[in-house]
Design a protein around this nucleic acid. Structure first.
Length: 512
DNA sequence: TTCCGACAGTGGGGTCGCAAT
DNA sequence: ATTGCGACCCCACTATCGGAA
């Protein structure tokens, strides 16, 4: 199959907003793909590269090579060239990669260049990624979409399912079963603004501590233990204490879902940065493990002794978990049997926060484990802080925000009357707000370098954030975690904005 | 007809580790 | 030795489509 066809279809998908049409376009293309093309076409049209890391960044792509007049590249040509580029290592490899990328671009037409650029920068922007590709795959083969979706969750990848399905048809889906040692996409949670709202939606539910660590899926088959992250990366070698913990459990074969977190000697959580640094350390695991030991805390069981628990209600899965895992290694929890238990659930949240944790997750007791989905049966509740900050600058947006000032630089007052930047945010604005702030900020502009527009610090905005964390990037030594805009405060002057001092005082644990 | 679940898009900060300088 | 940068961790929020109610 010609690469140009993918480029054209991707463009057509991007041009329509109807998901049904996107699905139909993908299905037509999948049907026409030869067996050897499938492993390439599927990820490309889901906006991903099968090779993963290639060492090709914006710089290498931005060479302005004259495009070819006529399409000649096949998808297999492109794949082979990218594999070659990814395999170049050693001294001068960046220059060699640049040459190879240039040659590839020169062989591509203008449309193909554009699609390549999107693929390599992860910005395909066609409004269709894995989920729509799954729909297209179902349409192309006549398989029920729900069955395809489930197979993808259990395989942990679209790729494997697509190849089997296109080669062998619907019966191939039966091969994708929950298997110890093969990771499945984890179930995710929605947000609720309060415990009351969450209980209102779920009714009878478990209220569990939300730990600020790294999600981990633990597989044990006899003496073999494997650990996987949320994106199914294998991190077994980095966390030997988790392997030991899994081997101490009574069961021989199981899959557990939980969180790994670094706790201090009093059992209080260390900062997320410390936990993340530990989990990310690969080169000297022994030293890292000595300095920042981590603990597993489990909250779900997906498989025990060969039986698949995914479709069981959470209450039953948890009973299995409790049989297998002793209490200290399970997440703290309480039960709320509906709105009558609201007070005790709120007290549980308060106690959780006193213990230094992030918040709670409410989980419907009757819900199955919806692998890979952000199901509505798990709702996280975290306290939200707000500040009134001053806009110091704004950055021009990309994609659908092109031409709009999008990413705001936020500052807090300092004792000398100037403002210290605390971070940026692009979240929380509606389209109307984007339009309004673009106009307003241009009135306040003192400089525009084409990327950042610096403004007079006169506009006050109310910002919500989840907490404060240490930073080496910003002058106050701290930055806001997950900052988002709540509303503009044109009724407030910059002199009424919040101060760095007050912010630090509100989060003493960060600077201590 | 209205409501709401699921998706894609738009990026944020930090950390690690590799490659280039 | 330092620096640049990609890949992963954590993540919130809005717009939109299309099926459910």
């Amino acid at each position: 199959m010609l690469f140009a066809r993918l480029a054209r279809v991707s463009q057509e998908i991007a041009a329509t907003s109807a998901r049904s049409r996107k699905t139909a376009l993908l299905a037509e293309l999948f049907r026409d793909a030869e067996a050897d093309d499938v492993p390439i076409v599927i990820p490309y049209l889901a906006g991903r590269l099968p090779q993963g890391r290639l060492g090709i960044g914006f710089k290498l792509l931005n060479q302005h090579i004259a495009p070819a007049d006529a399409p000649t590249l096949t998808v297999r040509d492109v794949d082979a060239r990218l594999t070659e580029i990814g395999s170049v290592t050693g001294t001068g490899s960046q220059a060699e990669r640049g040459r190879l990328v240039g040659a590839l671009l020169a062989a591509a037409t203008e449309d193909e260049q554009r699609f390549l650029f999107g693929l390599l920068t992860g910005e395909v922007r066609q409004g269709a990624l894995d989920a729509v590709a799954v729909e297209g795959l179902a349409a192309a083969t006549g398989a029920p979409p729900a069955d395809v979706r489930r197979a993808v969750m259990l395989a942990g990848s679209l790729q494997a399912v697509a190849e089997a399905l296109l080669a062998q048809g619907t019966p191939a889906l039966d091969r994708f079963r929950l298997t110890v040692g093969r990771p499945v996409l984890p179930m995710l949670a929605h947000t609720a603004s309060s415990v009351a709202e969450g209980i209102g939606k779920l009714g009878s539910c478990a209220v569990e501590e939300k730990l600020d660590g790294i999600r981990v899926q633990v597989h044990r088959d006899g003496d073999a233990v494997r650990l996987y992250t949320r994106t199914l990366d294998d991190i077994t070698d980095r966390l030997p204490e988790l392997t030991s913990a899994a081997l101490e459990l009574k069961g021989e074969r199981f899959i557990l879902d939980g969180e790994v977190i670094a706790l201090d000697e009093r059992g209080r959580p260390r900062s997320f940065q410390e936990t993340a640094g530990r989990v990310g350390s690969r080169t000297d695991v022994a030293t890292a493990a000595r300095e920042v030991p981590v603990s597993p805390v489990f909250f779900d069981a997906l498989s025990v002794d060969g039986s698949d628990l995914l479709d069981l209600p959470f209450a039953e899965r948890h009973a299995e978990l409790a049989r297998l895992v002793p209490e200290p290694m399970r997440v703290r929890r309480t039960l709320a049997r509906g709105p009558d238990d609201l007070a005790s659930a709120e007290e549980f949240l308060a106690e959780t926060l006193r213990r230094g944790h992030e918040g709670v997750v409410l989980k419907a007791l009757d819900a199955p484990y919806s692998a890979g989905r952000r199901g509505a049966s798990w709702l996280k509740v975290k306290p939200v802080h707000t500040l009134d900050l001053v806009i110091l600058a704004a950055e021009w947006g990309h994609g659908r925000r092109t031409g709009k000032l999008s990413n705001l630089h936020l500052g807090a007052r300092t004792p000398d009357g100037s403002f210290a930047m605390l971070g940026k945010t692009f979240k929380g604005m509606t389209d109307a707000m984007l339009t309004w702030q673009t106009g307003r900020l241009r009135e306040l502009a003192v400089e525009d370098n084409g990327w950042v527009v610096t403004v007079r610090p006169e506009l006050v905005v109310e910002i919500a954030y989840d907490g404060l964390q240490r930073s080496t990037r910003y002058p106050a030594g701290v930055t806001l975690r997950f900052a988002r805009v709540v509303r503009y405060r044109e009724d407030k002057s910059p002199a009424e904005a919040d101060t760095v001092e007050a912010l630090l005082a509100a989060h003493p644990e960060v600077t201590r």
